[in-house]
Design a protein around this nucleic acid. Structure first.
Lengths: 201, 201
DNA sequence: GCTTGACAAGACTATCAGTCTCGACAACCA
DNA sequence: TGGTTGTCGAGACTGATAGTCTTGTCAAGC
């Protein structure tokens, strides 16, 4: 979890200490509301009320609603980005894509992710945080592809960034539009066609 | 342009007639504001004021802000979805993808599309209209692929819907996140890898 | 000229993010 | 023990904005 609140003051700390229970209660409340929301917006008032906390306590530690939401999501959601390394690109890629797709099937994660994505459309601050969030995942996938290319399993001039975006593009497009499934069979078809479409010969 | 307002009453029409000038002025104003907005929300008040019209006149003919925005966009934006048919899949696909990507380079269309996409994240009504909007384009691309498959340029068991979603997935993902370009070179690389990755042999 | 529906203007309601204020309270220090 | 400081819960307040309602006016047709 990245701490998005203010950095501590330079002077030695005096005064009352931060209430960790309240801190956790806020994240818990946000996550619960996100999980139950299924896309409908989650309000700060609701988070504060559910956590039994004043609004000011929320804003003392997070700069915006979006920051709270993303923090709640990344605090609990599977933080570890998959990084399989079996020595075979096709297998690694299949696993990576299938794992990514599978995360969207769990309704708790899914509705939280959906809500955060929707809020990000309006909240520039959250959009920035989301860019970091997605960049981490893109990098992990790119490294996986890079290893495969070094083994000669991809053409030397294959456009790795484009392949990455084909994976995450399909993922977000189907996830947000919801017109087609994100199942394992699809994941494997996608992985296979990407390997075949970018080999050397 | 689809008419999103109420259906006319069954009784013969009496009273004052609809002011077509005002109708057009609203769409013009919405389009101008969308084009200038570059992602920032466009308000109904601004549309009405710019059009020199009362808010009620807007709501008499459109059910929500989103409906006005999408109507303005589809009214003027390139309505004709590209449907090249040269007899060669690779060429057709390259043209289709390049044309699609290119539309996002024109700042007027781009900021309008971006704003509508952002509004759609919050407005379920607009989200539904957007689904129709995108479905039209997906169908056109799928037909193009289907023709290629019948000519044997794609494997019989190629997953056309997945190929379609790779194109539009990359498009929207890069368009909304803005982390990588949507240029012609990228379009052609994408088209080529999709053909190669889904051929029969 | 009467009825009816469209019109511009704008007041009004409701929602929600984010700020501000207040009195209480806890940690540390002299 | 009492003063200083920062955190706490509570909630009033501001500002933005979608959407509704009201009012007085105007045009089309009977």
């Amino acid at each position: 979890m990245q701490e998005t609140g203010q950095t501590p003051p330079a002077r030695p700390h005096t005064g009352r200490r931060r209430n960790e229970a309240a801190h956790q209660a806020i994240l818990d409340a946000a996550l619960h509301l996100l999980a139950d929301s299924d896309g409908t917006p989650v309000t700060i008032d609701a988070i504060a009320r559910t956590a039994g906390v004043g609004k000011q306590t929320v804003y003392r530690w997070w700069p915006s609603k979006g920051a709270v939401l993303l923090d709640a999501l990344t605090d609990r959601a599977d933080q570890d980005v998959p990084g399989p390394d079996t020595g075979t690109l096709r297998t690694d890629l299949r696993t990576f894509v299938a794992t990514t797709f599978d995360a969207a099937q769990h309704s708790t994660t899914a509705s939280a992710l959906r809500t955060v994505a929707r809020e990000a459309a309006r909240d520039p601050h959250l959009a920035e945080l989301m860019r970091t969030f997605t960049a981490t995942r893109r990098t992990a996938l790119r490294d996986l592809l890079s290893r495969g290319r070094e083994r000669g399993e991809l053409a030397d001039d294959a456009d790795l960034d484009l392949i990455v975006d084909q994976v995450y593009g399909v993922f977000w497009y189907r996830f947000l539009l919801g017109h087609a499934p994100l199942d394992t069979a699809t994941a494997e078809r996608l992985a296979d066609s990407l390997v075949t479409g970018n080999t050397a010969d």
